[in-house]
Design a protein around this nucleic acid. Structure first.
Lengths: 282, 282
DNA sequence: TCGAATTCCCGTAGGGTATACGAGAATTCA
DNA sequence: TGAATTCTCGTATACCCTACGGGAATTCGA
C-alpha cells in the first residue's frame, strides 16, 4: 500500500555514499573507497563513474534515458551490475543531484565575496539558474527531502551566510533563506522545465500558444475576463514567452529583496506601514 | 526519439474537452455533449464521470493509482473503454487539473471582493494553498503548459484584476502576476508535496531528519558551515519542519507584496534606492 | 421489419520500467 | 591449492500506456 521508496530505510548507507569524497579522518576505513585491499574480484567501475554517466546521459537524452538499463548499456556492463555500486535507482538520483548542486561556484567561508548582501544573493540566483540550464532534467526531480550531501549543504550555507551578514536575526535568516530559495529554485526550475518541454516536444512555447488560437475565437468570453482583455488591448503581454518568464523572474526577485531590505533599514522617518493581512489563515 | 506526449497534436479536440461544459451558443452542435441523438450504442459513462473518478482515486490513493487500468476497474469497465471518452491519459490529466484549478472560490468580475489589493492576493494565496492540500497529487503535475481551460483562465483573470486594480500598468501587471503566481503556486505545491511524501512513506519530515543524525556527528564540518552553526547555536532553527515551511511562506509572500507596494507608493521623502545588481545575466 | 450505419466496448499484444534471486567468474589469502 | 570474498549479470515478475481490430448495441432508412 504505502509504496516506500527503495533507497529509504538505510540512511547510513545513503550518507556514506553522498559524502564518499569527503572522508573524515576519524572514520578510519571508508568502505566506499574505489580501491581496497583484500580478497574478491576487482570492481570495473567506481561510484563516480556511474554518477557521471548518469548525469551525462540525462543531460543529453533526458532523465528517462538515465534508466538502469540504459545506463548499464552506456557503461558496457549488465544492468544488475550497477546494483553493486548503488543500492537503488532512487539513491543514484540523489547522488546525481548532489553532484550537480555542488557544481555551483559559490564562495565558501573565508573566500572573497561582494560586500553587498544583495549582490551575494544575486550570485546564488545566477549560479542556480545556470545550473538548471546546464541540467534541464533537474527540473523534473523533486526538491522535497533533497540529498543531504556536501553540495546541498554548501549552497544552503552560502545563502544563510549572505542573509546573516545582511543583519537579519538568526531566526529570520532561516525563515528568509527558505523563502528566497523557494522563489529562486522554483523559478529557475520552471524556466528549465519550460525549455525542456520545448526540446522534447520539438515545439516552441510560442508555437504551442499559436496552436491554441481557437481558444480566443471560439471559447474565450470577454465579459468574464475583463482584466485579461484590458491587458491585451494595451499590448501588455509579451510577444515572446521566454522574455516574459525572464522579466517576471527579475521583477519578483527584485521585489522580494526590496521587501527584505525594508525590514533591515530603520527607514528615515518612514510611516509605520499597516499590518499585512494575517487573518485568512485556516 | 522525441517522445511526444500523446495528447498533443490535437489542440482542437483538447480545447473542446476542456470547455465541454461551457458550450458557446454559436458553436451549434457540441459533439461532446453527454446525450446525443442519432444512431449508435449508448455510452455508459460521461467524460465528467471519468474525470471525477480520476480525481477521487488520485486524492485517496495517489496519482499512480489513477492509471488507466485502475481507473477502469474503479468504474467497472474495460481499460480500453476509457479511450472512447478521452483520447489519451495525458489529456485526462489535463481535464483533472483544470477541474481542480477551477474549484478555487475566487470572486469573478462584478462579484464583491475586498477593496485592498493585498487582501485580494491573500484570497488567491489561501484558496490555492487549500486546493493543493485537498489534492496533494497536484504537486506532482507539471505547471508548464497547463491546461488552457476555464478553471485555469478564471484564476489567472482574478490575479490580474487584483494587480491591475492596485494601480500597476498593464505591462507591469502581467509581469508581477507571473512573479506572484510563481511564488504562491510553487510554495503551495512544495507544501503539499511535503505532506504527500509524509503520507506515502509513512514517515514524518522530522523523523526523516532524525534518521540522519549521523550527518552532524560524522560528516558535518563546522569550519565549512559557520552560518549554519551560528544559527544552530542561537536556536534559530524551527523545531518543527511544517512550522518552518509555513513561517517562510508567510514571510516571503509578505516581503514580495511589500516590494510591489513600494513600487506603487510615491514614498514620503524616501531615499532613492540604489539600483539592484543587474549585470550578472548571461 | 430488416439490413446498414454508427457508436461504444474491450481482449490481446508489444514495448517500456525497477529490482529480487541466484549461479558463475575473478581475485586474494591461508 | 582450496576457501573465502566480491563483483558480474541472465532471468523472471509485476507494473505502465495504447494500437489494433472484432464484437455488441442502438437507431435510421426503406
Amino acid at each position: 500500500m504505502s509504496e516506500r521508496r527503495s533507497g529509504e530505510g538505510q540512511p547510513d548507507k545513503t550518507l556514506a555514499l553522498l559524502w564518499r569524497n569527503h572522508s573524515q579522518p576519524t572514520a578510519g576505513d571508508n568502505p566506499t573507497d574505489a580501491r581496497r585491499r583484500g580478497a574478491g574480484r576487482r570492481p570495473s567501475l567506481t561510484v563516480d563513474d556511474v554518477v557521471r554517466a548518469g548525469i551525462r546521459l540525462a543531460d543529453e537524452q533526458g532523465l528517462a534515458a538515465a534508466s538502469m538499463g540504459g545506463l548499464a548499456k552506456e557503461l558496457g556492463v549488465g544492468t544488475m551490475t550497477l546494483y553493486t555500486y548503488v543500492p537503488a535507482k532512487e539513491l543514484l538520483l540523489d547522488l546525481m543531484v548532489d553532484q550537480v548542486l555542488g557544481e555551483r561556484e559559490l564562495p565558501g567561508p573565508g573566500e572573497p565575496r561582494p560586500d553587498d548582501w544583495r549582490a551575494q544573493v544575486e550570485i546564488y540566483s545566477e549560479q542556480t539558474r545556470a545550473m538548471f540550464q546546464r541540467h534541464l532534467w533537474m527540473s523534473q526531480v523533486s526538491a522535497i527531502r533533497p540529498p543531504v550531501g556536501p553540495g546541498m549543504l554548501a549552497a544552503r550555507e552560502y545563502l544563510l551566510s549572505a542573509l546573516l551578514g545582511a543583519g537579519l536575526s538568526p531566526r529570520d535568516t532561516n525563515t528568509a533563506a527558505l523563502a528566497v530559495t523557494t522563489y529562486i529554485d522554483s523559478a529557475a526550475s520552471n524556466e528549465a522545465e519550460s525549455r525542456l518541454v520545448e526540446r522534447t516536444t520539438g515545439q516552441t512555447n510560442d508555437a504551442w500558444w499559436y496552436e491554441r488560437n481557437d481558444l480566443w475565437e471560439t471559447y474565450f468570453d470577454v465579459d468574464q475576463h475583463p482584466a485579461m482583455t484590458t491587458i491585451w488591448n494595451a499590448k501588455g503581454y509579451h510577444s515572446n514567452t521566454r522574455e516574459a518568464v525572464a522579466d517576471s523572474y527579475r521583477y519578483g526577485l527584485d521585489r522580494l529583496l526590496d521587501g527584505i531590505q525594508a525590514m533591515l533599514d530603520p527607514g528615515p522617518g518612514q510611516d509605520v506601514r499597516a499590518d499585512p493581512v494575517q487573518g485568512v489563515a485556516d
